Simulated scan of single mutants.
Amino acid sequence: MPTLEELKLLAENDQLFDYAIRQLERLERFGPLPGIVLPLIEAFLPVLPLIVFVVANAVVYGLIKGFLYSWIGAVAGAVLVFLIVRGLGRRRFFRFLRKNRQVKRVMVWFEEHGFGPLFLLMCFPFSPSAIINVVAGLSGVKTRDFLLAAVLGKSVMIFSITFVGDSITSFTSNPVKTIVVLICISLFWLLGKYLEQRLAARARRKKG
């Protein structure tokens, strides 16, 4: 098992993708577990590029299974980080983070808008997912809203990476792929807002 420094060196030398494929093929006897674990680990080690693991899953497992395994791992990792931070949020280190002006600003933004900004941030592969998960855990955003945003937002992001592949230029140069991804983002946005409103209405009825 390579150390974190060795993984970082592989990433810097553009060798992490080949390494991930070799490991997935070597551990194929364990079924979907390796394909799920790699994206999950990325949630705790944000120096590792999630895109590499998602594309590697697509190559080894195929489009559908690769997407599914990456999505399960990414969502599970995000939720675990969120719940851990929420549970430990009153510890000294996290109290220091809470006092940071920029962190407080993002926390208030999450608290005021809930699902919307979380969903959009989780849709994009280059957004700082580890920071989003931590700040969301420190904020007062509802766990329900975070779970909804993670499930839907990560699905859009993972689908986009899997569908487009490892070539970012093909995303910008192929209008069909771009249109498909934008339609999916729009549909998941509408679905998320609908579910958010339904859940909020149900919570108001319970309080009433």
Results as ranks from 00 to 15, higher is better:
T162F: 02
L80P: 04
L16P: 03
K177V: 01
E25V: 12
L80W: 07
R205I: 06
G62D: 14
R101Q: 13
Y61D: 08
V180L: 10
W71L: 12
R91Y: 14
E112R: 15
G87W: 08
I168S: 09
S170Q: 03
L88N: 11
N57I: 13
K99F: 07
G137E: 03
A201N: 09
P32G: 10
Y194W: 13
P34R: 06
E196Q: 15
V134S: 01
P34Q: 07
W189P: 11
K193L: 05
V180N: 01
D14Y: 07
P39N: 00
L40E: 10
F94G: 07
E42D: 09
A203K: 14
N57T: 12
S186I: 14
F44N: 09
K193W: 03
C123P: 01
L118N: 04
R26N: 06
T143K: 09
A78P: 03
L187Q: 08
V134A: 03
I51C: 10
A76V: 09
E5H: 11
T162S: 14
G35A: 14
S155Q: 03
L10R: 04
T3I: 09
E111N: 13
M157Q: 02
S186Y: 15
P49T: 00
S70C: 04
E112H: 13
R91D: 10
V79D: 10
E111Y: 14
N133H: 06
A74L: 01
C184G: 12
C184D: 01
L190I: 12
K177N: 04
F44I: 09
S170M: 05
R205E: 11
P128C: 05
P39I: 00
V85H: 06
G77M: 05
F93D: 11
T169W: 12
L148Y: 02
P125A: 10
N100P: 13
